[in-house]
Amino acid sequence: MAQPKMVAIDDEVEFTKTIDSFFGNRGYEVHVALTGISGLELIEYHKPDVVLVDLKLPGMDGDQILQQIRKHHPEIKVIVITAYNDGGKTRDRLLALGAFAHFDKPVSSLRDLAEAVKRALAQPSTSQPQP
């Protein structure tokens, strides 16, 4: 299998840097963006296998990016990052909208994120997203 490709979009610079080095250290080709618009450009350009996107972004937000990807690149798995800690309400909504998984700061663990990314890569791109 070729080197898996990932695009991470989050306006929290320190978080984006952590994702970059963490997945970079594990054999991924990681491209990071701090805004939704530049994130979409990276997606169009690199055609990643998986996208990590923060829900709350200046300009275009995670919801809109999720919609765009579902529409134009349904094969790309989207993992939405939030910082709500709201007991799963947001997660259920996002999964219903077609997100592959949900990472909630600071509740979720990086290990779980790594697992989710692995699962995303292992799943055939044509299959329906799992709740």
Binding site: E12, F15, A83, Y84, K105, P106, S109, L110
Partner: peptide, 17 residues
């Protein structure tokens, strides 16, 4: 909540990484 969860998320991610 968001403004507090974000910094905590960063600290947690860095340590975990």
């Amino acid at each position: 909540n968001h403004e507090i969860c974000n910094p905590l998320g960063i600290v947690k991610a860095q340590c975990e990484a």
